[in-house]
Simulated assay, not measured.
Amino acid sequence: MPSTYRLAIVGTGGIAHLHAAELRRHVPDRFELVAAVDPDTGRLDAFNAQFGLERGYASIEELLANEELDLVDLCTPPVAHGPGAIAALEAGVGVVCEKPPALSLEEFDRIAAAAAASKGDFSIISQHRFGSAAERVRNMSAAGVLGKLAVAKCDTLWFRPAEYFAVDWRGRWETEGGGPTMGHGIHQIDTLLSLVGPWSEVVATAHRHRRDTNTEDVSHAIVTLESGASVVITNSLLSPREVSQIRLDYDNATVELDHLYGYGDSNWTVTPLEEHVEEVMQAWYSKPRGQSSGHGAQFARIADALDGKAAPPVNVTEARRTLELLAAIYASAFTGKRVRAGEIDPTSPFYQRMNGSGAPWPDRK
């Protein structure tokens, strides 16, 4: 019989409302939402009233001192992810964290150390991994049906107006960690890596074209995978026709995903070479089918992992691989050099912060 796990949400902004709604809609019998945390009393009270919660706290420390929990769901601004995760893990409570998991590799490694010493696990929200079509593509690739990957692209082309950055923590290295590379493209990039495997090196550029921020508003990267395949990645907040796209060109077929903030099976297309139509399409129409991407799908997998006493997806190793690629994109963009996996170590300024030795434009106050 599946267990029900006690969960508290930390932060009660827009993403917390989405998490709470997804928990209630998709896995109400797997998680009991018992409390919320926010230093803003008005916002906390409104959240608790909406979701029928009796208890609220001003800090995660107060929460941990008063509640018996299985999981803390961090929905705070990025600057609070690291301190919140470490506090929960040191209390022996598992953590699921919204993106990005940390502001830097240095902070992430402190989270990983806390997780290694804790009975709780740390995992990162990456809801686009969990649609059935993505799982099918991974299965087809592993089975060799698609052949070897040759070329891929991964685009997060979104639009955020100037007013979006009126929120004081947005657009600042010290509180958001980066621009669209870090805060928006991360989900699409992580989904890509879950499909194509580890990366080996990157050459990149980043630009601040339009927005009044300290971070970039556009970045481009050419990534070489360990397999030898090449990937082009673009992240933008300046694109009026918003779209999220992944295209994978294998030897036997092209696989494409075209969506915005979430997908179903219908958002994917497969175009096989004529001589491989039968085997590719037979695999494509196999199971699993019918599961859209989304937070509910990931929370169901988290509950399954807890039932089996396994580390929830997406784990420390997978989350770090994605974060390291983001750090490498910034390092390449700001130094003009090719950056290889493993190269950003504690001696690098890009290990300490995503803007490393500094962006090629002045900070705006």
Results as ranks from 00 to 15, higher is better:
residue 171 G to N: 12
residue 18 L to C: 00
residue 214 N to G: 08
residue 244 S to K: 03
residue 60 I to L: 09
residue 176 E to L: 10
residue 233 I to G: 05
residue 154 C to H: 06
residue 308 G to I: 04
residue 210 R to I: 06
residue 119 K to R: 15
residue 225 L to P: 01
residue 20 A to D: 05
residue 257 L to M: 13
residue 204 A to I: 01
residue 43 R to E: 00
residue 30 R to Q: 06
residue 153 K to A: 13
residue 233 I to L: 13
residue 124 I to Q: 13
residue 292 S to K: 08
residue 164 Y to H: 07
residue 328 A to K: 10
residue 67 E to H: 09
residue 195 L to G: 07
residue 280 V to L: 11
residue 11 G to H: 07
residue 209 H to G: 00
residue 242 E to R: 01
residue 177 G to Y: 00
residue 315 N to M: 03
residue 358 G to M: 15
residue 361 W to F: 09
residue 338 R to T: 14
residue 49 A to L: 11
residue 206 A to F: 03
residue 158 W to K: 04
residue 169 W to R: 00
residue 128 H to C: 10
residue 45 D to S: 05
residue 122 F to S: 08
residue 27 V to K: 11
residue 341 A to I: 08
residue 172 R to E: 07
residue 314 V to S: 12
residue 94 G to T: 02
residue 121 D to C: 10
residue 12 T to F: 11
residue 336 G to W: 06
residue 306 L to D: 04
residue 251 D to G: 11
residue 294 G to H: 08
residue 59 S to K: 00
residue 84 G to S: 08
residue 245 Q to M: 07
residue 340 R to Y: 06
residue 221 A to L: 05
residue 94 G to D: 06
residue 335 T to N: 09
residue 95 V to N: 08
residue 52 G to S: 12
residue 187 H to N: 05
residue 62 E to A: 15
residue 142 A to I: 05
residue 249 D to G: 07
residue 201 E to H: 14
residue 204 A to Q: 02
residue 64 L to I: 03
residue 212 D to W: 07
residue 135 E to H: 13
residue 41 T to W: 00
residue 147 G to A: 06
residue 162 A to Q: 14
residue 33 L to Y: 01
residue 183 G to V: 08
residue 364 R to Y: 09
residue 214 N to D: 14
residue 107 E to C: 02
residue 141 S to M: 07
residue 203 V to H: 02
residue 292 S to T: 02
residue 360 P to H: 13
residue 84 G to F: 04
residue 173 W to N: 02
residue 309 K to N: 14
residue 103 L to A: 04
residue 354 M to A: 08
residue 100 P to E: 02
residue 240 P to G: 07
residue 356 G to E: 07
residue 177 G to W: 00
residue 145 V to A: 12
residue 136 R to N: 08
residue 205 T to Q: 10
residue 309 K to F: 11
residue 207 H to I: 00
residue 266 S to D: 05
residue 123 S to L: 14
residue 40 D to W: 01
residue 211 R to T: 04
residue 325 L to I: 04
residue 264 G to V: 00
residue 72 V to A: 13
residue 17 H to N: 09
residue 104 S to N: 02
residue 235 N to A: 15
residue 359 A to L: 04
residue 65 A to S: 12
residue 115 A to T: 10
residue 149 L to V: 11
residue 274 E to S: 14
residue 205 T to S: 14
residue 210 R to P: 01
residue 130 F to T: 05
residue 115 A to E: 14
residue 152 A to M: 10
residue 27 V to S: 12
residue 303 A to E: 10
residue 281 M to W: 14
residue 270 V to C: 09
residue 93 V to C: 10
residue 168 D to Q: 03
residue 161 P to I: 02
residue 57 Y to W: 01
residue 98 E to T: 05
residue 239 S to M: 05
residue 40 D to Y: 01
residue 119 K to M: 07
residue 76 T to C: 12
residue 187 H to L: 13
residue 133 A to V: 04
residue 246 I to E: 02
residue 211 R to D: 01
residue 319 A to F: 06
residue 8 A to W: 13
residue 317 T to D: 12
residue 45 D to R: 07
residue 171 G to Y: 06
residue 126 S to V: 13
residue 96 V to I: 14
residue 337 K to D: 12
residue 80 A to V: 00
residue 244 S to N: 06
residue 149 L to D: 09
residue 181 T to R: 08
residue 281 M to E: 15
residue 26 H to P: 01
residue 145 V to Y: 06
residue 141 S to H: 12
residue 138 R to H: 14
residue 16 A to C: 06
residue 310 A to K: 15
